[in-house]
Amino acid sequence: MNIIVCIKQVPDTTDVKINPETNTLIREGVESIINPFDMYAIEEAVRLKERFSGTTTVITMGPPQADFALREAISLGIDQAVHLSDRSFAGSDTWATSYILSQAIKKIKDFDLIICGKQASDGDTAQVGPGIAAHLNLPQATYVRKIDKIETKGAKQTILVERLVEDGFEIVEIEMPCLITVVKEINEPRMPSLRGKMKAKKAQIPVWGKTEIGADSSKLGIEGSPTHVVKIFTPPQKQGGVVLEGEPEEITEKFVNDFKQYL
């Protein structure tokens, strides 16, 4: 079974800063990690490969330093990686990003399953995974917490998954090839191995730009992104309120007097 895992390199902090002019994240000076949810996607792919054999491929779209994230994925047991990097990709929203990733997946061609983390810890949109499935016209299951079964039915291969919903979980069977996004309940990611780290160090990782993936220029970057961020702001914190103390009559009088000023 051939599996493609889509990952994102994110800042290793929840305390991210925003560039007020472009309304995008300031990434300089912040250590980067693999999006924590993508670690579960990587682990699940490696486990499936251990059970069914095949090839696992990790892809990411990102600046040159995203190469580190791909190598880390290899150290965790992924076989090979592709890096999608091009100036024209910069500023892509979730729609453009999922388009770019889907173009790369079309180029890789031979796959049975695409696994993504449920969302990235920086943007929290949870849109890229479903977006890829839409661009590729593939069935999908989001928020998967367990893969129950993968079986062959005639000429078809199906996957039976449990997906987390607000008040419990649903069991869904979908036809492969397909895309799933996974939640942290699905597994416990392993540590890297020494052999994996050595392999990661030596790995040749191809970098594909818009030409390599045959992308339509009008669908890339800020210009190709229908989302326009108007403003990003931190909502004002709720104030603690005022505690009135004293006899009931005094408190009531004070409350009424204070309240009048808001009328």
Partner: peptide, 20 residues
């Protein structure tokens, strides 16, 4: 098991015997 999966028991054992 974590040590094993991370190849930590294989260090300083020659490669012909399954080590690193």
């Amino acid at each position: 098991k974590t040590f094993a999966e991370s190849d930590l028991f294989s260090i300083c054992i020659p490669e012909q015997y399954g080590g690193m």
